[in-house]
Amino acid sequence: MIENTTNIIQMIAVGLCAATGFWNGHVSRKKTWVLLGFMALVFFLGDLYWQLYLISYGRTPYYSHIPYYSWYASYIFLLLLIQALREGRPNCKSRFVLIVPLFTIGMTLFYMQWGDYVSNIISGFLMTFLLLNGIDGLIYVYSSKYSDAAYGTAGERSAGLFYIAVMMSCIAEYGSWTSSCIWTGDTLSNPYFWFDMLLSISILIMPAALRKAVGV
């Protein structure tokens, strides 16, 4: 029951995000909005497939990973969106980002005890790139070292909230994956549902954050 509720809340959140993205993309003709629309649409399709399957057959998909392809695709669109936002800006040189691959490789090895190898490796790769880009973006926006830098764009300088939303979504994904390995049960005491809600909130924040960065 709670899984259905959180899934439906998440579908509403990503549906709103997709509608906002495509509408603003249609109005402004900006690639960043279209990519946000695609990111949310693909996520929505994955959620919809999962939910329909669950309602129709009372179990989760077993023989293939169709919804996972969608969720991977949404990460890819998010990465493309970040690249579009950066407009070719070189990386900030920070040793702090070295922690990311250590974390993601460790977590991938941990998840491999439960899930299959291929999907965990794909998730690990995509999350590594998302976290690297998210942390790099936050350093660029908030570090005084780069405030007078010649490179970068005014849009990206206002993208602090967007990068916070990206980081929130990554944390929520890792939190929900880890919870599903350790906890079971369809009650609110399972942290999985709370991380799922955090993911929905982070996706809801993205249109407002992108508006602040690139306008409409």
């Binding site: 693909v42 399709l45 392809y69 969608s70 695709a73």
Partner: peptide, 14 residues
Amino acid sequence: FLALIAVTITYHGI
């Protein structure tokens, strides 16, 4: 391309 193939697969599945 990879991302859009994923879209078509999921759409077809739904």
